[in-house]
């Protein structure tokens, strides 16, 4: 009888460990997808998982048009004077596209390993 309860406790203990470590693992792996975040005037408008995009489409954000493709995102057009954001082309892994005049940002949530990027 004493033995049986011991076993029971060991099983409970092990299953708790398994559940917790799975939870931790999932927690760490989940944000690994390439999520592009589009903000205007410091407010988040869209969060898009670029790896799950099947057909390309565009989004209108104020005077800017964002092109969303499988694995890539870019500024297709903008009504700002310098159009630096359009010239920047597509991004897929590192960095962000910023349209300063219209206060539109497209950023791909960075690799957790990098804390800041010099420009």
């Amino acid at each position: 009888m004493q033995n049986l309860t011991n076993k029971k406790w060991i099983i409970i203990f092990l299953s708790i460990i398994v559940v917790c470590s799975t939870a931790i693992a999932v927690f760490h792996i989940l944000p690994g997808g390439r999520v592009a975040v589009i903000t205007k005037d410091e407010k988040i408008l869209y969060k898009i998982d670029l790896s799950s995009v099947k057909e390309s489409y565009t989004l209108t954000v104020g005077g800017n048009v964002v092109l969303v493709e499988n694995g890539y995102i870019s500024m297709q057009s903008a009504d700002c004077p310098d159009k630096l954001c359009v010239k920047q082309g597509k991004i897929s892994e590192v960095g962000s596209i910023v349209c300063l005049p219209n206060k539109v940002i497209i950023r791909i949530d960075r690799n957790e390993e990098i804390d800041a990027a010099l420009r």
Binding site: D115, A116, L118
Partner: peptide, 28 residues
Amino acid sequence: GGNVQTLGTKPDGSLWNITVADPLQSDT
């Protein structure tokens, strides 16, 4: 705007990782 400054280290005591842009392809 790319002017970076850090305070202390990361909460776990490790160093900050800060990328230096490629001046010829600074966006990517």
